[in-house]
Design a protein around this nucleic acid. Structure first.
Lengths: 208, 208
DNA sequence: CTCGGACAAATTGTATACAATAAGAAGCGA
DNA sequence: TCGCTTCTTATTGTATACAATTTGTCCGAG
């Protein structure tokens, strides 16, 4: 509801109101608010009342910057720990991703998103750091990824696929620094696609 | 209770048992478990049962590595955004820290910890990234910092103070990369003090 | 003796009621 | 009219009861 714009930035979120609206009691609503607060989609003021956080473009830039750093770090660790099995799995996923974006008449965006998600998650798993996994999960908003992909053209899809291929090369050579550099660039490129599409808009929500 | 070793690693944490033990109902216990899970002090298995996580030395190394990366990033951002006012505040804090570690006959460890915390928190604030602040708070376990400081000798305290001074130089010149490098080294040094003190021990808890 | 299946126990998820607290509104005096 | 106090109301914190799910155990068939 926050990400779809159904709730406006700054709007107060009363537990009882939300509970009624969702047809559940306050208890699961409280849990959900806690999670959303951890993901910074919801803020609490000094007296514990909840409000919809407003993500300015700067906030999104901030999130992407951190994600670039952390996924880059994950890629480096993954490269250092790469096994033939994992490498093969990654190649298979990227092959499927390639097939999805080359579908005609229209590329299969849902397929792209799914395989892209699998690709990044497998790298994260290969990085073998519970903490990194936990921290990143709070940082990657799939709806933001989704909106970014909506603005991809054929060339952007191909670039994404090629960057994944580059990553596979770095992984095959266990070249950690290279993998880190490619991944950081990969994420930053995604941000610029997002930023170009939202240029001049005050917040994410008003664009949704 | 987890950090003091009152609860053993791997031990199951029943909400009801904890509630009884703490004299409260299950509701606040549930909230607490959620928070502890976010900080990775508690794990949940696939069927949502909670257990005390066991932090091996590798896990602590993992946490310190991430902390070095993220606090380094924070230091760089802080350097780029540094103002005379903040710089002055940081200098004052470090002066007080210096006084605390030079107390005789024994250095004032509590004072060191307090001013060290203030120093790092002000840098984090100057970095001006809500996300970075949120993520780091889940990563910095003050009890771990406390235990590390217990193993500091006079030279380690001085080194810490001098590294803070170096950071101030980097901040004064708004030299982001330099600040990042110093901070990363500063955190890594702290880890090695910790690791040396715990060498050969299987887990944090058994050493506490 | 082992393997399933069903039953019992333990545990978590959810709903609801009440208590504590904070925000807002009304009244009162200067 | 402004500022203060007080009361009302809105909202969150906590306790408890019950439902749903999972785990462990026991018994019988093969």
């Amino acid at each position: 509801m926050v990400l779809s714009g159904e709730l406006s930035p700054g709007e107060q979120l009363s537990e009882e109101t939300l509970a009624e609206r969702c047809g559940v009691s306050r208890t699961p609503v409280r849990d959900a608010l806690r999670r959303l607060e951890a993901e910074l989609l919801v803020r609490k003021n000094e007296s514990q009342r909840s409000f919809v956080a407003d993500w300015s473009v700067d906030d999104v830039a901030d999130a992407f910057e951190l994600r670039a750093m952390m996924e880059g770090h994950a890629a480096r660790r993954a490269a250092e720990r790469m096994t033939p099995q994992v490498l093969d799995d990654l190649r298979q996923i990227n092959t499927r991703l390639c097939a999805a974006i080359q579908k005609r008449p229209d590329p299969d965006i849902a397929g792209f998103l799914e395989y892209n998600k699998q690709f990044h998650e497998l790298i994260l798993k290969a990085a073998d750091s519970r903490r990194l996994t936990t921290l990143l999960s709070a940082l990657i908003e799939q709806p933001v990824v989704w909106r970014t992909a909506q603005h991809y053209g054929a060339e952007a899809f191909n670039r994404s696929h090629n960057e994944h291929d580059d990553l596979l090369s770095a992984f095959a050579r266990k070249d950690g620094p290279w993998a880190e550099a490619i991944m950081a660039g990969h994420i930053r490129r995604a941000f610029h696609v997002y930023a170009d599409a939202h240029r001049g808009l005050a917040s994410v929500e008003s664009a949704a």
